[in-house]
Write a protein that binds this DNA or RNA. Structure first.
Length: 289
DNA sequence: AACGATCCCTGTTGGC
DNA sequence: TGCCAACAGGGATCGT
């Protein structure tokens, strides 16, 4: 008897590009123009990639937020003094805006006082996420320089995507997750993209023809846009939530992810689950070829 | 260079 | 009922 591999209903909702973008949009009115009054690091592991442990606190206090950007799954808060407050939500991170006298939610890792009676709270159960404050030079030298173009705001034309896939033998699913090719697609949206494009996840990247790459590109754009419009995917209330605490509603629109054993809404075929590079991949063997 | 494996971490859950 | 291994996964790192 096979162990049931179907993830239960209480899985973590892992933030990908749409979740980070929905977070960015939700934070805009609370952050832009604000001065950072105080900074409290409650779990040191979450502040990483700083030259000195005290840099995060010391660089952040007194700064003013100029604007909020995003590259792939990284949130970039631009500050005065040419500093960059960088956040990655990891697997279980979320950013919340709460009243500054609100109790600390369980697993709160960083609390930032915004000087308007609100706090920004970084809550991250598994601490795969991180925060850091970098100078221009540090940002330029950081791992972010290896990121490909943003999968939503800067999606490369098909011709360029096709060139990047030629001679690649890895499964297209694995290549979609490679942030050096295109930045922002994670496990859920990779599966949703491949279903929209009607391409099987185990196909070698280099085996896609021009028409398939065009469908792939359209699938990336459409799945990410739909995810953003829905405020992201909240699989439960323990992981990803919007900054105001509401859940994203994309879960109900998922075409394949988490639907093993259910039927494909396009062709009626059975949705399968296959492990690719150690990640669950859900796909329809009827219409994804 | 490309690819795959391993590790980090914690809450939940299936199996016994 | 209680214990415990398995599982989820983004990204850094390492071996081949």
């Amino acid at each position: 008897m096979r162990r049931t591999p179907l993830p239960g209903p209480r899985r973590a909702g892992v933030p990908e590009l749409p979740e980070v973008e929905a977070t960015r949009r939700g934070l805009l009115p609370y952050l832009v123009g604000r001065r950072i009054e105080h900074v409290s690091v409650l779990h040191p592991r979450v502040v990483r990639r700083q030259l000195r442990p005290t840099d995060f606190h010391d660089r952040l206090v007194g700064r003013t937020v100029l604007r909020l950007d995003r590259h792939g799954k990284f949130l970039l808060v631009r500050l005065d003094a040419d500093l960059h407050w960088v956040t990655h939500l990891g697997m279980s991170g979320r950013l919340r805006i709460v009243g500054s006298n609100a109790d600390l939610e369980l697993h709160t890792r960083v609390s930032v006082g915004l000087g308007d009676a609100n706090d920004l709270r970084f809550v991250d159960t598994r601490t795969f996420g991180f925060m850091t404050v970098w100078t221009d030079a540090e940002l330029a030298e950081s791992s972010l320089r290896r990121l490909g173009r943003d999968a939503f705001t800067d999606l490369p034309p098909s011709r360029e995507l096709e060139a990047g896939l030629t001679n690649r033998t890895a499964p297209i699913k694995a290549l979609l997750l490679d942030q050096r090719i295109v930045a922002g697609v994670g496990n859920i949206y990779a599966d949703e993209t491949l279903h929209r494009a009607a391409i099987a996840p185990l196909r070698a990247g280099g085996s896609l023809d021009g028409g398939e790459v065009k469908r792939l590109r359209a699938g990336i754009r459409a799945s990410l846009a739909a995810g953003i419009a829905a405020g992201g995917t909240s699989l439960d209330d323990l992981a990803y939530l919007l900054p105001d605490g509401r859940a994203g509603s994309f879960l109900e629109q998922l075409r394949v992810y988490g639907r093993e054993g259910e039927s494909c809404r396009r062709c009626g075929g059975g949705i399968r689950r296959t492990v690719i590079r150690g990640r669950s991949s859900f796909w329809c063997s009827g219409c994804q070829t």
